[in-house]
Structure formats: structure tokens, C-alpha cells
């Protein structure tokens, strides 16, 4: 492991966090239709606007506000909620933990189903099995998560198939089964697009790998087909999937907004909706920034994993 490379990537990651905070700041402060209007609605009187701006420190020069905001992000201080007056960071941590649990279960589901199915489809290319898998994944790719979530709710939470609760969250300390029982349906709902996407990516990169010249070399050495698949193609063919999984984590961080809303799951996503409805700006900023930062970290991790798995990438340059 090359520490210079690691250091460089860390610097880039920090820069990305900084840049994203700036972007969020820019969108919320600089876009026409300013914050006070956002909070009060468009019909507010000028005095009310001026008062709110003074309350929030919005009458300060933009660069002071900016430094204050970015400094806050770097120290994980997002200010106080307009609605409850509670520090935003206190509000967001438990929710983040719950959202990450949901994402972890959803991710696990896509890894354990999509990757094997993708490999099977690639290995049995152009057979019935392949066509079945790819066609099904096609449909999956076209179902937005709010549709799949609503349909799952319709099918599995009411008689005759009342298999799952309609929503909510049970902490892990109350037992794995109840925990999973509440998580499973939203996790599956979140997976429609993602699972299909991972599957198609896995299949296409495996197909490409299986057509490569070094696979031909292996077969011409007399290596048996199963060993060709797992000994030679597996590692190279799954490399792109690492990146795809990180991308999907980003997709999930968006999808949680919908899934948590539908399943009344108390995570960051639900918080975003509440913040939009109640026009709670600091909460909105934090609830958008925190999953974004999680996504940036996921990308960083994927990058490192990729370089560890692929000997061609020396961590030097």
C-alpha cells in the first residue's frame, strides 16, 4: 500500500466534501427566491423577511455566512433546527444510523442475488436462463422505487398476505428477527432498479472478460470451465462491479427519501421530507449533505478496494 497515494486520495475526498458543502450553500443561499422567502413563503411582509434574516444571521455578508457554514460542516455542526431549536447534528445521527442499516440490508440483498445471477447469465450466455434473467432485470430496471414500494405495500401488508408490518423501525437490540422483519420490505423495494443495474453490469463485464484473450489462453491450457470461470474470470470480471456498487450506494442515498416516506421509516430521508414541508433550512441542508458525504466516502472506499484488487493499478501515480 502506497501511503502517498492514500494521502492524495484523502485530500481529494476532503476537497470533495468542501466543494459539495459549498454547492449546497450556493443553491440554498444564492438561488433567486432567497432563504427568508423560502421559510416564510412568497406572501410575507418585508418586515417579517428582514426580521427572519436578522434572526438567522442572513444579513451578514455572504462570505461570512459561507465560512460559517463550511466551518460548521467540517466540525459537524449544522446549526439548530428552525422548528424545534434542537441542534441538527443531534437530530441527524440516530436517523443516519437507521438509514445506513436500511442501505446495508438493501446492498446485501443486491450483492447476494445480483452478482451470482449476473455470473450465471454470463456463463450461460444466450441460453434460456440468460434470456430469462436479462428480461426480468429489464423490467426491474424500469420500476421506480416509489412504484415498487407502493405495490409491495399493497401485496404484503394486508390480508390475505399480511406478512410484513406496514412500516416503522425496531432497533437491532430488540432482536434480529423483528429488526429484519421491519427492514426487509423497504430494502426489497429499494432494490428494484439497483439490483437490475448491478446484475446487468456484472453480466456485461463477465461476458467481456470471458471473451478476452487470456481466458482463451486458460482454456487452451486445458483448464476446466468451472475453474476458468472462478479462477480466471471472476476477479477481473467483478472489478467494475466494485465501482458500480459504490454508485448504487449513491442511488440508494437518494431513494431512501421515497422509501422512508412510504414505509414511515425514521431515517434521514424521512427527515428531508419533513424539512421541506416545514421549511426547516438547517435540517434540510444537513439531511442532504450527510448522505452525500456518505456517498463520497463510499466512492473513496470503492477506489481503494479497486486498487487493492487490481494489480495493474500501482498506487504510485
Amino acid at each position: 500500500m502506497n501511503y502517498v497515494y492514500l494521502l492524495k486520495r484523502l485530500v481529494y475526498m476532503l476537497a470533495a466534501v468542501l466543494a459539495v458543502s459549498s454547492a449546497v450553500f450556493a443553491i440554498t443561499t444564492l438561488v433567486p427566491g432567497n432563504v427568508a422567502n423560502y421559510i416564510l413563503g412568497t406572501g410575507a411582509t418585508e418586515e417579517r423577511v428582514a426580521q427572519v434574516e436578522a434572526d438567522l444571521g442572513l444579513d451578514r455578508p455572504v462570505h461570512v455566512q459561507y465560512l460559517d457554514f463550511v466551518g460548521g460542516v467540517l466540525t459537524l455542526d449544522f446549526g439548530e433546527s428552525f422548528v424545534s431549536g434542537q441542534p441538527v447534528s443531534e437530530m441527524i445521527w440516530p436517523r443516519l444510523i437507521r438509514t445506513l442499516q436500511l442501505a446495508a440490508v438493501a446492498m446485501t440483498i443486491s450483492i447476494v442475488t445480483a452478482i451470482p445471477l449476473g455470473i450465471v447469465a454470463a456463463a450461460k450466455r444466450d441460453t434460456i436462463v440468460d434470456q430469462l434473467v436479462t428480461t426480468t432485470s429489464y423490467i426491474g430496471l424500469s420500476v421506480p422505487s416509489f412504484v415498487s414500494a407502493t405495490l409491495l405495500l399493497l401485496l404484503f401488508t394486508s390480508p390475505p398476505l399480511e406478512l410484513f408490518p406496514r412500516g416503522g423501525y425496531v432497533a437491532l437490540k430488540n432482536g434480529v428477527i423483528p429488526w429484519l422483519h421491519h427492514l426487509l420490505l423497504p430494502a426489497i423495494a429499494m432494490n428494484t432498479v439497483i439490483l437490475a443495474y448491478v446484475l446487468r453490469q456484472t453480466r456485461s463485464s463477465m461476458v467481456e472478460t470471458l471473451e478476452s484473450e487470456y481466458i482463451r489462453t486458460a482454456r487452451l491450457k486445458g483448464v476446466a470451465e468451472s475453474k476458468v470461470l472462478f479462477g480466471h474470470a471472476f476477479r477481473n470480471g467483478l472489478l467494475p462491479t466494485v465501482t458500480v456498487l459504490a454508485l448504487n450506494f449513491g442511488w440508494m442515498m437518494g431513494a431512501v427519501v421515497i422509501i422512508e416516506e412510504i414505509f414511515a421509516y425514521p431515517g434521514v430521508g424521512e427527515m428531508i421530507i419533513q424539512a421541506v414541508d416545514s421549511r426547516d433550512l438547517p435540517v434540510l441542508q444537513a439531511a442532504i449533505l450527510v448522505p452525500t458525504i456518505a456517498f463520497i466516502i463510499a466512492n473513496f472506499v470503492a477506489d481503494i478496494v479497486y486498487t487493492l484488487l487490481d494489480p495493474r493499478i500501482t498506487l504510485g501515480e
Binding site: A16, V20, A23, V24, I27, T28, V31, G250, W251, M252, M253, G254, A255, V257, I258, I272, V276, L284, I288, P291, T292, F295, I296, N299
Partner: peptide, 12 residues
């Protein structure tokens, strides 16, 4: 790109 698509849309 590093802001998840739906979140960026929501924010805007």
C-alpha cells in the same frame, strides 16, 4: 455528480 441525483433535484 457526487450529490445523489434525487437529493440534488429535491434541493433545487
Amino acid at each position: 455528480i457526487s450529490i445523489p441525483t434525487l437529493l440534488l433535484g429535491l434541493l433545487i
